[in-house]
Amino acid sequence: MAPLLALDNISKRFGAVVVADGISLALNAGEALGIIGPNGAGKTTLFAIAAGALAPDAGRVLFAGEDITGLSPDRRCRKGLARAFQIPQPFVGMTVFENVVVAAAFGAGEPEAAVYDRAADLLDRCGLADKANRSAGGLTLLDRKRLELARALATKPRVLLLDEVAGGLTEHECHALVELIKDVRASGVSIVWIEHIVHALLASIDRLLVLHGGRFIAAGEPREVIRSSQVAEIYMGIAADG
């Protein structure tokens, strides 16, 4: 069976900076993948290409075996590919509830009145129930991240792209997030998760990839990858430089 989401030989450069140098990736149905890599490695760019916000210079994006490289982000979303942005992108002039209703109605292609329950339920699960009628523009960064997650889930995704959603959470909140993501997985959603909080990743994923210099330099069982010398070198290198 074809993987649910596949990047096939993706290349992308900004001016002279090569951020993706022939990257391939396959996410199987039901799988959860983690991606780590130093800042500026091109992790977010890879998500932008997968979700259609950015066109690759070369290579293809496939969804359930279908070539979607030329599809707009909204078409990809309606097919079941949802993205939670690293820098939250709320609809600032709408309420928190309305933000989720938009995603639920359009991302899942359902009539507005039919999604109210689901939207309310998602706010509850993402810890935003008591802020449902607040303006999204007034939320703290943490709540914006929660909203980002709630909105992505509201589109009823088959594949969920999470970009650093755990940054800045307390230990307790991080634990709740991991539980939520496990829940989402159990409901049949496949996940790609970019994250710096490694222990949160390790608790939730099957496979870990390390992005560096425009390529995946390591991939495999998460704990083994973390222990591998090459990865240690990069992170140590950064630590030593810093």
Partner: peptide
């Protein structure tokens, strides 16, 4: 609803499934 979302954030509107 879609139009208000576009007003606030076109990028997010598109990635929420709205044909902008």
């Amino acid at each position: 609803l879609a139009l208000t979302a576009v007003r606030d954030n076109e990028l997010a509107a598109q990635s929420s499934g709205i044909d902008v």
